[in-house]
């Protein structure tokens, strides 16, 4: 079972990751730099909570769980933030994608469903399908990179523990 001590570090780092991912300029580094850093911080926070407990041993599964939790939490918040940005701005990411597609592949027909999503965003400034897609995408991407970060953190903690014990 996922230990409850993992939720708070995952919530803090996942939320911070989601916030930073909508900041212009910084957002370019979200996937490849910020998500691994979030994984590292999350795991270190968890380790600091647990290291004095009797019988505690850091396992690989802790890194995986932390990465997936951070991915899920950041995906959830990022989809909300992106929807809010669409709500307050005049952007229509679906329409932009359609334009790009028609520029390079004019022979491909755009299905009615996709036009409907674009219209829905224009009229209501919200589309559940788009929000869901953003959630799935960001969850997958952030989970992968946060897991790498937390696994790196596990290996550095283990190396540090070995060098400390050999002194």
């Amino acid at each position: 079972m996922i230990k409850k001590e993992k939720f708070l570090p995952a919530l803090v780092t996942g939320f911070s990751l989601a916030v930073l991912s909508i900041v212009p300029v910084i957002q370019v580094a979200t996937c490849c730099l910020l998500a691994p850093l979030a994984g590292m911080f999350g795991l270190n926070m968890y380790y600091l909570q647990m290291k004095n407990r009797e019988g505690f041993k850091l396992q690989n599964s802790d890194g995986f769980q932390m990465g997936i939790l951070i991915g899920l939490i950041s995906g959830f918040f990022e989809s909300i933030f992106q929807s809010l940005l669409i709500l307050v701005s005049k952007d229509n990411p679906v329409y932009d994608s359609i334009i790009l597609l028609q520029k390079y592949l004019p022979e491909l027909p755009v299905p009615e469903t996709i036009w409907n999503i674009s219209k829905q965003i224009d009229e209501k400034r919200f589309s559940f399908l788009l929000t869901f897609m953003v959630f799935i995408n960001t969850t997958i991407v952030n989970s992968i990179f946060a897991t790498i970060g937390s696994m790196l953190s596990i290996s550095s903690i283990r190396k540090k523990n070995i060098s400390d014990s050999s002194l």
Partner: peptide, 23 residues
């Protein structure tokens, strides 16, 4: 994908995924 996939919805989905990784 733009060179070999001929399904609009799939291309848009893949493009959306890569948009998270690159400007």
């Amino acid at each position: 994908s733009l060179n070999f996939i001929k399904d609009t919805a799939l291309i848009l989905l893949i493009n959306n995924f890569y948009h998270n990784l690159c400007h």
